[in-house]
Each structure stands twice: as C-alpha cells, then as structure tokens.
Simulated assay, not measured.
Amino acid sequence: MRSASDLLNLDDEFSASELELRARVREFVDRRVRPHIAGWFDRAHFPVELVPELAELGLLGLHLPGYGCAGGTAVDYGIAIQELEAGDSGIRTFVSVQGSLAMSAIHKHGSEVQKQEWLPRMARGEVIGCFGLTEAGAGSDPSSMTTSARLEAGEWVLNGAKRWIGLASIADIAIIWAKTDEGLRGFVVPTDSPGFTATPIEPKLSMRASVQCDIRLADVRLPEDAVLPGAVGLKGPFSCLNEARYGIAWGAVGAARDCFDQALSYALERRQFDKPLAGFQLTQQKLVNWALEIQKGQLLALHLGRLKDAGRLQHHMISAAKLNNTRMAIEIAREARAVIGANGITLDYSPLRHANNLESVRTYEGTDEVHTLILGQHITGISAFRA
C-alpha cells in the first residue's frame, strides 16, 4: 500500500522483487511488532523470540553473499531496514548489529575457517553477535581506545572495557577491537570466555526495546587464530561502520514515514472547531513539509543503494545520507507528536517513541558533528578533526 507521503510515485522506482520484499517485511512488522512494541518499549524488553523469525525472512546478513546468507542487494537490505525501523529502531538495530557489524566484520576480514564456523549459524539466528568498538572515553575518536591485546605464549590476552555495545548481554560472540603491537586488530571473542562480562545499561529513555551494554574484559584469553586476519588499523572497523551507517539512512526514512502516517490518520479523525485537524491550514502545511522531506530522504537512500550495488558508493556520500535523513526524521517525529497533542505523549502513538529512539540513532555510527566534518573535509580538503 502506497503511503500518502509518496507524492512522486517513488514506488515506481523499485522493481517487482524489491516491492515484494518490502511487502513481506512490512507484513511481518504489522503482525509481529506493531501490536506489541508499546509494551516492549515500556518494559525495556528486547523480544529475542523474534530472532528465528527474522532469520527465516532472510534478514540476518541479507546483503552478504555465501555462507548461508541471502546474498541480496544493497537496495534489498535498505528496503528491509526501512520497514523494520518503521516498526521500531530497536528491532532494526538488532538486524543491523548482527548483519552489518558482527557478520560483516567476519565476512570482510575473517579467515575462511572463521567464516565457515560462524556465518551460517548467525544467518540462521542460532548465534548472536555484537561489535565492541566504542569505549566510555573513545566514542567519536576510536583511535584513543585503551582496550589492549597482547600475544603471550601462543594466546591473545585482552584487557579493557567497551560501552554502548548493542546486544552484548544476549550475544554468543563479540567482535572486539583492541590495540596490539602491530596496530588495531579485531578478535572473535566467545562471550562465555572467562573474564568477559556484559552488563545492560539501564535505565534508558531511548532504544528501550533494544539492548546496549557495558563490556569488561579482564585477562580474556583467546587462541592465536581468534584474530581477524584481514583487518589491521581503523579501516577494519570503519568498513563495518559504513555498512551500518548506510542502513541508518534507510531506517530513518521508515521512522519518519510511520510518524507521518500516524499524524495524518489522527488529524483526519480528530475534530476541533467543528472540522478535522487535517482541514486546518497549519496542519496541512506540516503534512506537506514532512512529505517533501520524506520524499527527498527516500530518493537519497535509494540513490545510495543503487550506487552501492554498482560499486560506486563513496564514504562521504554515506555521511551525507546519514546526517540528512536522521536530522529529517527526528524533526518530523517531534512535530508529528505535536499534531497528536497530549495523546502523543502516550505509547498509543509512535512519534514520541520514534523521536526518543532517533536521539540514539542520530548519535551512534557517527554524530551529526562527525559527519559534518567528514563532509567538510571532502569539500575543503582540510581535516578539522585534529590540530
């Protein structure tokens, strides 16, 4: 079903198979997420029971070829992510962390043995992964991390701490990035390893239907082959972050579209001064402005997807889309809550829930400021990150 925000018939820009995928994921969200998300958000509960269903839909590692993964296109992945985030950012985050971060790290940088051991089971949802890069003192600047790994008698010994690590307390493996004598390296760490501890961060005002954790690593010992052989330096984790950032550009459009649809439905039904709210000029102006921004965000995400599938996507383009679309979505979510009025502060309606979630989405995988400076460096040729 076409949203009223599709002023330009952008559905015509998608293939039949892409629209079929969108319909399948949208039906799943309508059936399994929307009826329950208010309760999950209220109780700060991540519905782990959805994991096998997400796997059955082929959404875990959707864009990765081989190893039991669906091998879909970048646009396929974006479409699925957009529909999941229209339900809730927390559900989209699970698929993003599992596929674009943990699975992507192994797929891009792992040995053949690591790929065969982990990726098929992760695609089936039998193994959950997390991605440990951020630290309490190293967010936007991961090069300042203090987590370390040293090779000692044929074993890696990891020490340090990570923060804001999605899924860590329910994960079976963690991709941990640590400093070594040869530079930054990634490690596949079973979460039942002695010395590994993951603690959910509570209470939260955002991403409540998701899991974010503190990780402690105290003399965690791993075999020598636990290291990801294909990644040395920051390019390793950044290649995975770009996958996640690309997905966010699509997901934010889904959240914005859901806010638009809910506010429009409410405005058509709610009557004040003997007419529907939708009949007032100020309300119509809001709806028009939102629809225009959603259309631009959709075009931007789709253009990125087509470029990615053609092998022509550049890093600064991802920053442009992530910055623009999250900024657009959070403004629409806030204004849509205002159209719904006092009722909008309840969990009967989605915009304020989306707005709260988007505060996190806007921050992780690069803040507005970081992406602004990435674009500024691209435009001027001058890095503003360091003196």
Rank of each mutant, 00 (worst) to 15 (best):
K108P: 02
M103L: 02
G125E: 09
A102Q: 00
T134S: 10
K115N: 03
D141V: 12
K115E: 02
A138P: 03
S143T: 14
E135L: 08
G99D: 14
A123K: 01
L101C: 11
A136V: 06
V113P: 01
S104N: 11
P120L: 11
Q98R: 15
P120R: 11
G139F: 13
R92T: 11
L119W: 06
E117Q: 09
S96D: 08
A105N: 02
P142I: 14
S143L: 10
W118K: 00
R121G: 01
V97S: 06
I106K: 03
L133Y: 03
L101K: 13
H109E: 11
G132S: 10
I106N: 03
W118E: 06
M122R: 02
K108A: 07
V95K: 02
H109W: 11
I106Y: 01
K108Q: 11
R92G: 15
S100M: 03
A102K: 00
L119I: 12
G125S: 08
S140R: 02
S96A: 06
S111M: 07
S111E: 12
A105M: 02
S104R: 04
E112T: 04
G132Q: 03
V95S: 07
F94R: 00
F94W: 01
H107A: 08
L133S: 04
Q98Y: 13
G99L: 15
K115I: 04
R92Y: 14
S96P: 02
S100H: 06
T93S: 08
H109K: 06
C130M: 13
G129Y: 04
A105L: 00
E117I: 03
W118G: 06
G99S: 15
A102D: 01
T134G: 00
S144T: 05
L101Q: 13
D141K: 12
Q116K: 13
T134K: 05
R92N: 14
M103N: 02
H109D: 05
S143E: 15
G139T: 12
A136Y: 04
I91G: 06
C130A: 15
Q98I: 13
S140M: 07
C130E: 14
V127Q: 09
A138N: 08
K108D: 07
L133V: 12
Q116R: 14
I128G: 09
W118F: 14
Q114L: 02
S104F: 09
H109Y: 07
G137K: 03
P120M: 13
I106R: 03
T93G: 01
E117H: 05
P120T: 09
V97Q: 10
Q116F: 06
T93N: 06
A105Q: 04
V95L: 08
V95F: 10
L101E: 15
D141C: 09
S111A: 10
T134F: 09
I91Q: 07
R121P: 00
A136K: 07
L101W: 14
T93V: 10
G132I: 04
Q116Y: 11
K115R: 14
H107Y: 15
R124M: 12
C130I: 15
Q114H: 12
L119Y: 07
E117T: 09
E112Y: 04
A138E: 07
A123I: 00
M145T: 15
V97A: 11
G129M: 08
G139S: 12
E126F: 08
E126S: 09
I128W: 13
G110C: 13
F131E: 00
Q98T: 14
S143A: 15
R124F: 03
I128E: 06
V127Y: 10
R121V: 02
G99Y: 13
P142Q: 11
A105E: 04
